[in-house]
């Protein structure tokens, strides 16, 4: 599946000679993110992680299915809810955790925290915490690639809330006007903080609105990792053929509150429960157990391998040093190389 660099060991391994079921990589990718996020809750409660932290539990199919389909040379621009995107991109788990622990070994040297993960070696252009702020930058990255004649795509992830910002509309128009290779990925989880989609948008069909800028745009079941991967492949093929940007509306849901500060007063418990029935991890797992793509033992091995990776990453991150205080003002300006 993925041509992006990754630091995970494949588990379980297929019998010799048989190719691995490609769905296993999707499942493993989602389980990795799910269990990582749940570990982050514990670490946050223990005050090892501070500040704002936004989890993507429930939305793993987008991270694994979409980011996992990108090529290594493609670029990614994300938001503050980006742990899953970073992990799917292959940003090492230990460096993500070290960042949240504020360590010099963090992927942003402790200066960004949970909302600002950067790993430019993997063309992961970060966690932007200004809603809509990443879209113009993604357009510019794509412009640079187009001008340099590189056949690569910039994937820009953002939420349904961002669609209300002027920067969204300006960016889609610009990308379409100049036929730039941008994949606009709207994770429509139906809420912008506490404001429901219907209270945020006069026209809630977000793909329809994107299509008005003259680009292919369609909704995708964002709780189905295979559907997300399939839609991403189609969109990438269109973009790589030089026909300009595409827009995917990934219909999904966050199972947890907006952030660790959010008491979640605005959602009906029954609604949350209905969406939990669509749990993307469970859906794929059940499908694979049903058709023989997975058995109980290989599932157990998969989870155990993920948990081992997480615990090793926590230990590794904990061992990382703090940035010396004397270096406080480094990187405000570029350093001579």
């Amino acid at each position: 599946m993925s041509t992006s660099p990754t630091d995970t060991e494949p588990a379980p391994t297929p019998p010799p000679g048989e190719p691995e079921d490609p769905r296993l990589a999707l499942l493993r990718g989602m389980v990795r993110i799910r269990r990582f996020e749940e570990r982050c809750v514990e670490l946050y409660s223990a005050e090892r992680i501070r500040g704002f932290m936004h989890l993507c539990v429930g939305e793993e199919a987008v991270a694994a299915g979409l980011v996992g389909e990108l090529a290594a040379q493609d670029a990614v621009v994300s938001t503050y809810r980006e742990h899953g995107h970073a992990l799917a991109r292959g940003v090492p788990m230990a460096s993500v955790l070290a960042e949240m622990f504020g360590r010099a070994t963090g992927c942003s040297r402790g200066r960004g925290g949970s909302m600002h993960l950067f790993d430019v070696a993997r063309r992961f252009y970060g966690g932007n915490a200004i809603v809509g702020g990443g879209l113009p930058v993604a357009v510019g990255l794509a412009l640079a690639d187009a001008l340099r004649g590189e056949p690569v795509v910039t994937a820009c992830l953002f939420g349904d809330g961002a669609v209300a910002e002027g920067e969204f509309h300006e960016s889609l128009n610009l990308a379409a006007l100049w036929r730039l290779p941008v994949l606009f990925c709207c994770e429509n989880n139906r809420y912008a903080m506490g404001t429901a989609l219907e209270l945020e948008h006069a026209q809630t069909d977000l793909a329809l609105r994107a299509s008005s800028y003259g680009m292919p745009a369609w909704p995708v079941d964002g709780m189905d990792a295979e559907a997300v991967a399939e839609a991403t492949r189609r969109a990438l093929a269109t973009i790589r053929s030089g026909r300009g940007p595409c827009f995917l509306e990934l219909r999904t849901y966050r199972f947890r509150a907006h952030s660790m500060y959010d008491p979640d007063r605005y959602r009906d418990r029954a609604e949350v429960a209905r969406w939990k029935d669509q749990d993307p991890v469970e859906r794929l797992r059940t499908r694979m157990l049903g058709d023989g793509g997975l058995d109980g033992a290989s599932w157990d091995r998969l989870v155990a391998a993920v948990d081992a990776e997480i615990e090793a990453a926590v230990a590794d991150a904990e061992a990382g040093p703090l940035e010396p205080v004397e270096d406080l003002t480094r990187f405000v300006y570029a350093e001579p190389s």
Binding site: R50, G51, E99, G102, R103, S108, G110, R111, G112, G113, H116, L322, E323, V325, L328, T329, V332
Partner: peptide, 16 residues
């Protein structure tokens, strides 16, 4: 404040 975008890590933020 120090002339730096406010950093995340507690010790750096405090110093800023």
């Amino acid at each position: 404040s120090a002339e730096v975008p406010v950093p995340y890590a507690a010790h750096l933020e405090r110093a800023a």
